[in-house]
């Protein structure tokens, strides 16, 4: 079982970032969690740090200034080898079917998850790594 070490949480809603962080911390003790409050922040981070050891990214769609899909577009211009071992989940409270379709059509995205992410959902995501 490959261990999840580094997770990025991207959401403009602090509550969700806290909630998802709690769920992750309870299920994966010692995991490193980086929290970003906007698409701009995470994009700048990814461009700046040039990391390739990110295991999971949870990305909200509807964020002011730069939404989740814009972040994914920007990531698509980066070196793809960096995200070879990274699973990206799109998280949203949207009911718009178009968002769901778009998420499924984006190659970088592993899956779409409706908010809030429950323990069960997280468990099943983590179970996929085993």
């Amino acid at each position: 079982m490959e261990r999840i070490k580094k997770v990025l949480l991207v959401d403009d809603d602090d509550i969700f970032n806290m909630l998802h962080g709690e769920v992750l911390k309870r299920l994966i003790p010692g995991v490193r969690i980086e929290i970003f409050k906007s698409g701009v922040e995470v994009t700048e981070y990814l461009q700046r740090e040039n990391e390739n050891d990110i295991d999971l990214i949870f990305l909200d769609i509807r964020m002011p200034v730069m939404g989740g899909f814009e972040v994914l577009d920007a990531m698509a211009t980066m070196d793809p080898k960096r995200f070879e071992n990274t699973r990206i989940y799109v998280l949203s409270s949207t009911l718009d079917d178009r968002d769901l379709q778009r998420a499924k059509a984006t190659p970088l995205v592993t899956d779409f998850i409706g908010k809030p992410m429950s323990f069960d959902t997280m468990r099943s995501i983590l179970g996929q790594t085993s």
């Binding site: 809603d13 509550i15 969700f16 909630l19 709690e22 769920v23 509807r62 949203s92 409270s93 949207t94 009911l95 718009d96 908010k115 809030p116 992410m117 429950s118 323990f119």
Partner: peptide
């Protein structure tokens, strides 16, 4: 409508998340 429903749901869903936590 989507925006409204999204915005209506978001706090609701965070309530649900916190409750489950």
């Amino acid at each position: 409508v989507y925006s409204i429903s999204h915005d209506l749901r978001s706090p609701l869903l965070s309530i649900k998340g916190i409750v489950s936590l």
